[in-house]
């Protein structure tokens, strides 16, 4: 496969984790400008694990996700009382705080005569696991999509369970959900932790592909994009944010039709969609319409009518 295509597809895959992370909070009714912080924590934690502690890739990935999830748990408690705009500002402040901590975070060890590890604003070089294991860019791309498929499958399962219904209920009307007996605190914290862990997985994958991290990477721009992907693609299903990523990186960027003006086009697209389709292209209504169309077109008449599949017996027969 063409090197450029592998690069574009890998980037689409990795940023999808961040988009899904923002999506989880969006369906619970919260707008977060801070998911890039968990992406950063996942990246640094897994990079430290494999490059400095000699861990394998998978333990490093799990460690990155766990560290990001734990950080999300810490964020969830103080921001629980915040809603709407205040929550958004709270998450932004947290993300900037994390970025600034990485600007001064120094922890290096000597490996093969070279210092490896985070060195403040100088960054963190030498996350060489995929080079040491001789994993090609193409195979790493496949690995990214395998993990993404796993996360998507998990989200689809969650959305079909009581947990998914409660998250959407909280997103629709928190007060009503609470009067129905929903423990708001518990489910909001859970959503924040899951969203943090998903971003952490993306960060871990990014660290090993890029091999180099610096705090500047995890600025607010990354958070704004991840949020915009959900708003463009739609909040009806977890596929929505992926559509948003596909439109931005896959279409606008790769086609290069707008060249350096792409960010302006992207911003304009977000503004237009917020006006005309505030819950994105693939919103809940669109998903229901698609599901109904699918059932009417492809399922058997018995399933459509909800019967047993046998023709009704005639009276007296």
């Amino acid at each position: 496969m063409d090197e450029y295509l592998v690069q574009v597809l890998s980037n689409i895959g990795m940023i999808s984790f961040l988009a899904l992370s923002a999506y989880i909070l969006l369906i619970t009714g919260e707008i977060s400008f801070g998911q890039q912080a968990f992406f950063a924590i996942g990246a640094y934690a897994s990079g430290i694990a494999t490059a400095m502690w000699g861990w394998g890739f998978w333990p490093g990935l799990v460690w990155g996700a766990a560290a990001a999830g734990a950080a999300a748990f810490l964020l969830a408690w103080p921001t629980l009382r915040m809603r709407g705009l205040f929550f958004a500002i709270g998450t932004l402040a947290f993300a900037e705080m994390v970025r600034l901590i990485f600007e001064i975070f120094r922890y290096q060890v000597e490996i093969d005569g070279e210092l490896v590890g985070p060195n403040g604003s100088e960054g963190f070089r030498g996350i060489r696991y995929i080079f040491e294991q001789d994993i090609s860019a193409f195979h790493y791309m496949l690995l990214i999509y395998a993990v993404l498929a796993g996360v998507l499958a998990l989200l689809f399962v969650i959305e079909r369970t009581r947990l998914g219904a409660i998250w959407r209920m909280l997103g629709e009307d928190e007060l009503l959900a609470e009067t129905e007996g929903v423990n708001r605190t518990y489910y909001k914290v859970l959503a924040t932790v899951v969203a943090g862990a998903v971003a952490g997985i993306g960060g871990a994958l990014y660290a090993h592909m890029n091999t180099y991290l610096e705090p500047k990477i995890f600025n607010v721009m990354l958070g704004v994009h991840s949020l915009a992907y959900g708003l463009i693609g739609g909040l009806g299903t977890a596929f929505g944010p992926l559509i948003g990523v596909g439109i931005d990186i896959g279409l606008l960027e790769s086609a290069r039709i707008f060249s350096g003006y792409r960010m302006i086009v992207f911003g304009g697209l977000v503004a237009l969609l917020l006006i005309f389709r505030p819950r994105g292209l693939l919103d809940e209504a669109a998903v229901h319409a698609l599901v109904a169309w699918w059932r009417n077109t492809f399922s058997s008449p018995a399933k459509r009518s909800g019967g047993s599949g046998r023709p009704p017996e005639r009276p007296g027969a």
Binding site: Y4, N11, Y206, K216, I217, M221, L222, D248, E253, S254
Partner: peptide, 18 residues
């Protein structure tokens, strides 16, 4: 070797042809 580039301020958003 191949050479590509990424903007640290906008990671993954720009794909330079290697």
């Amino acid at each position: 070797f191949k050479v590509n580039a990424d903007m640290p301020a906008m990671p993954m958003a720009h794909n330079v042809k290697p």
